[in-house]
Amino acid sequence: MIRVVLPYHLRTLAQSDAEVQIAVAGAVTICSVLDALETHYPMLRGTIRDHVTQQRRPFLRFFACGEDFSLESSDIELPPKIVSGEEPFLIIGAIAGG
């Protein structure tokens, strides 16, 4: 199972905990993880990636094992620790509270 950590506003939308676990078939890439996430939580469609272009929303970032994957190709395979579930795939959102 792949662990995915969601920012607060997406947790509310998905009515989920901060961390969700999803099964991903085949290669574990940013694209396949997000596809599986949207299949499991259809209300997240269009919130992480643009409906039409499938581009990441600019106020969200993707991180894996401490590294920024936001500007990587969505077909790049994620690190083994993400694949094994040892580390979560992080979707980080901008917050502005002070």
Partner: peptide
């Protein structure tokens, strides 16, 4: 990090 902000109202304030 964040080239553009979220749409107004999407991310709540404190």
């Amino acid at each position: 990090l964040y080239p553009a902000p979220p749409p107004p109202g999407l991310v709540p304030s404190c």
